[in-house]
Computed example of a mutant assay.
Amino acid sequence: MTNITRSNFQFHPFHLVSPSPWPINTSLSLLALTTLGVLTMHSFTYANNFLLIAFICLISSMSLWFRDVISEGTYLGNHTLAVQRGLNMGIGLFIVSEALFFLGIFWAYFHSTLSPTIEMGAHWPPMGIDAINPFELPLLNTIILLSSGVTITYAHHSLIQGYRRGALYGTMYTVLLALIFTVLQGVEYTVSSFTISDSIFGSCFYFGTGFHGLHVMIGTAFIAVGLWRILAYHLTDNHHLGFESSILYWHFVDIVWLFLYISVYYWGS
């Protein structure tokens, strides 16, 4: 009887996750998404239909996985200080990996700009390409994105101080500004005079700004979940790890955009 009773107690502060189908489902969905993406680019029959199915499976698996994580931290109380430290380290390493990803993009960009090849006329931008004016839509997008960094910081400090209205409005304004940024980025793509196939200039431009736009959309969803959790009274002044992680991710997105604006839009044009 004593042994059975002791086995029901946990003598460490770490959460032992119960068996879950969502990690393996997410991995398989990602594998299918990347494979079908390549097949779609090579015009395989029905590949685009299966690509949509794979994307729906990925979103569903990740949503159910995050639902379980939210339940563990909010309702079950499994996110102790030790667990929160581990999650903080995880999001930090994730942001570092994203930074290295963008470092590769900037490396390719500067490799091409600092020493343009003879095939491009030894000139940057290449002859025949009209770069986007950095003082039009790009400057407006810069102001919008930096403003969203201010509003989310205001929301964070309001939450810490127990000011619920400020946390709600700050987060809502951040989501709104992020959506406006995404729409304006799409407008910029439609009116630009070059495409991704126009030499290394088009490839680097759309690869860098496009992946940044993808990160903006992911960060918008991340913060929108935080907004929903604030509305549902999930977050408190000292227990809002997911919301804090979304804020760190959003500041990373802001910093990357500053580098993109200065190097690609201003200096590169």
Rank of each mutant, 00 (worst) to 15 (best):
G73I: 01
L58E: 03
H111G: 12
F110K: 06
V83W: 05
L114S: 09
P23S: 03
T34H: 03
E72Y: 15
L16W: 08
S18F: 08
I129W: 03
G37A: 00
L76H: 11
G104N: 09
L33M: 08
L51R: 00
H42A: 13
L93K: 00
T26Y: 04
T117I: 10
F66C: 03
T74D: 15
P13D: 08
G104R: 06
L58T: 05
E98D: 06
I95Y: 04
G37E: 00
W65M: 07
F101E: 04
S20T: 13
F66W: 15
L28M: 11
G90N: 06
L103F: 14
L52D: 00
M41Y: 10
H123P: 02
T117Q: 11
D68H: 09
P126H: 04
L114P: 02
F101Y: 14
F101K: 02
S43V: 10
T117D: 10
H12L: 06
V69A: 12
T117K: 13
N49F: 15
I24G: 02
I129M: 04
L58W: 09
H79L: 07
A99E: 03
G90H: 01
M120K: 08
F50R: 05
A82P: 09
D68V: 09
D68N: 10
Y109R: 00
R85M: 10
R85S: 07
G77L: 05
R85L: 07
G77V: 05
L93C: 03
F50L: 15
S97L: 14
I129Q: 04
P13T: 06
P116A: 04
L36P: 04
L39H: 02
T113Q: 14
L36G: 03
F11Q: 08
N49M: 13
T45S: 11
S29Y: 01
I24P: 00
C57E: 06
G90L: 08
G86W: 01
E119V: 13
P126Y: 04
Y46G: 01
S115L: 10
L16Q: 12
I105M: 14
I53A: 05
S18I: 11
V69Y: 12
P125N: 06
V38P: 05
F9W: 11
L87R: 07
Y109Q: 01
M41G: 07
L28F: 09
V17M: 11
A108N: 14
F101V: 06
A47F: 05
L52I: 15
F9R: 15
S27T: 14
F44W: 15
T26G: 07
Y46D: 15
F14S: 09
V69E: 15
F55W: 11
H79M: 07
W22N: 00
G92R: 02
S27C: 11
L36T: 10
T117L: 12
S60N: 11
G121P: 07
W65L: 10
M127Q: 15
L81M: 13
C57N: 13
F50K: 06
Q84D: 15
F102H: 00
F44E: 08
L93E: 04
N25W: 14
